[in-house]
Simulated scan of single mutants.
Amino acid sequence: MGNVYFVGAGSGDPELLTLKGKRVLESADVIIYDRLVHPVLLYLAKDSARFIYSGKYPKNHVLKQKNINQLLLEEGRKNQIVVRLKGGDPGIFGRVGEEISILQSEGIGYEIIPGVTAASVASSYSGIPLTHRAYSSKVTLATAHRQAGEIIDFKDLTDNGTMCLYMGVEKVQSTQKKLLEQDVSPQLPVAIVEWGSLGRQRTVAATVQTLVKAIEEHQIQNPSLIILGDVVSCRNGADWFEQLPLFGHKILLIDTEKIDFEIIISYTQKGADVYAIQVGKNRDQRFDEVHQQYLRDHYFDEIIYLNEELTTMYKKQWDILNKKFV
Rank of each mutant, 00 (worst) to 15 (best):
E150V: 11
Q182I: 12
L63W: 11
E106H: 05
E194I: 03
K258G: 10
K66C: 05
E257F: 09
E181F: 11
H249E: 14
S126F: 06
R286A: 04
C234F: 07
Q243K: 15
P129Y: 05
E242H: 09
L246R: 13
Y53R: 06
D13I: 00
L103K: 02
E216Y: 01
S11W: 15
I112T: 02
I100W: 08
P223L: 07
R50L: 02
Y135M: 05
G87V: 04
I192H: 11
S48E: 14
T203E: 14
E216Q: 15
P245V: 03
Y305I: 00
F300W: 03
T256S: 09
H145E: 00
D284R: 14
M163C: 13
M313S: 11
Q317W: 10
A9G: 09
I113A: 05
L72F: 08
T175Y: 00
L157I: 12
I31A: 12
D230R: 09
Q70M: 08
L85Y: 03
K324G: 06
S137G: 13
H132W: 02
Y53L: 02
A148Y: 13
V172F: 06
E75P: 09
K20P: 01
S11G: 07
I68S: 13
M163I: 14
N160R: 14
A134Y: 11
K155A: 07
P189L: 13
Y305S: 08
I254N: 04
A134I: 04
K64W: 10
D230E: 15
D47M: 08
L130D: 05
I265E: 00
I92T: 00
A122M: 07
Y294D: 03
P129Q: 07
L103M: 03
E308C: 03
V83N: 02
I128L: 08
L17F: 04
K138R: 10
I220Y: 04
R35P: 01
S137K: 13
N160E: 12
V193N: 09
G196M: 02
D230H: 13
L17W: 03
Y299R: 09
K59G: 08
T18V: 01
T268S: 05
A272W: 05
E262M: 12
F154W: 15
D288C: 11
A142E: 01
Q70Y: 10
R23W: 10
L295M: 10
E216A: 12
E170Q: 13
Y299W: 12
D230I: 01
I263L: 12
F51T: 01
A148R: 14
L244P: 08
L44D: 05
G76E: 07
I52G: 06
K270F: 05
E170N: 15
G10K: 00
Q285M: 10
G127K: 04
S54N: 09
I303C: 11
L179G: 02
G248R: 08
D284P: 07
I277C: 08
R84I: 03
G196K: 06
D284A: 08
D273Y: 15
R286H: 00
G168H: 10
L295T: 05
K138Q: 12
I81M: 14
D284W: 04
Y267P: 01
L141R: 13
D156W: 13
P58W: 02
A134T: 04
G168S: 08
V208H: 03
Y135S: 04
D183P: 08
S54G: 15
H291D: 10
S233M: 11
G199D: 05
E111A: 11
G115M: 06
K250M: 03
D301W: 09
D288A: 12
V190D: 12
M167R: 12
T162F: 12
V62Y: 14
